[in-house]
């Protein structure tokens, strides 16, 4: 059996980070969580993560910057933004920068799971 896909979760809010991790786990996927964008970048290597779920407002490097950095590194890993900030400009910017989805907290599990699954399918198709 091939290794289950690995989902990265970046959120500085501990409760939310753990909640997202648990949701990923109940889907029988592997989750690695990070409290900051920098911590994720330090662990980042091509082909290690299949999908990234990130908050936008983070201490230090923000989610949009992380998105740009990953893009500059040549990453095509799908990025799902989950944020408590309802700001149409941020949404537009994130989507223009290639975010796979932009979801506002509190997020519906069905919606998030749907996006995770289609992100993984898309990633598979690319390989």
């Amino acid at each position: 059996m091939p290794n289950p896909p690995v989902i990265a979760v970046v959120d500085d809010d501990e409760a939310m980070r753990l909640a997202l991790s648990e949701l990923v786990e109940v889907l029988s996927l592997t989750c690695r969580d990070f409290d900051r964008a920098e911590a994720f970048l330090a662990a980042y290597e091509p082909q290690v993560f299949d999908c990234l779920i990130t908050d936008l407002s983070l201490p230090g490097m923000c989610g949009l910057e992380l998105q740009r950095k990953l893009h500059a590194l040549g990453s095509s890993m799908p990025i799902i933004v989950v944020t408590a900030t309802s700001n149409p400009m941020l949404r537009t910017r994130a989507l223009e920068n290639g975010a796979f989805a932009y979801l506002e907290k509190p997020v519906k599990d069905k919606v998030l799971v749907g996006h995770i699954m289609s992100a993984l399918r898309e990633g598979e198709a690319q390989v």
């Binding site: 500085d12 407002s57 201490p59 230090g60």
Partner: peptide
């Protein structure tokens, strides 16, 4: 802890 929600 580091679960503070307002940032930077």
């Amino acid at each position: 802890g580091n679960g503070s929600s307002f940032t930077g």
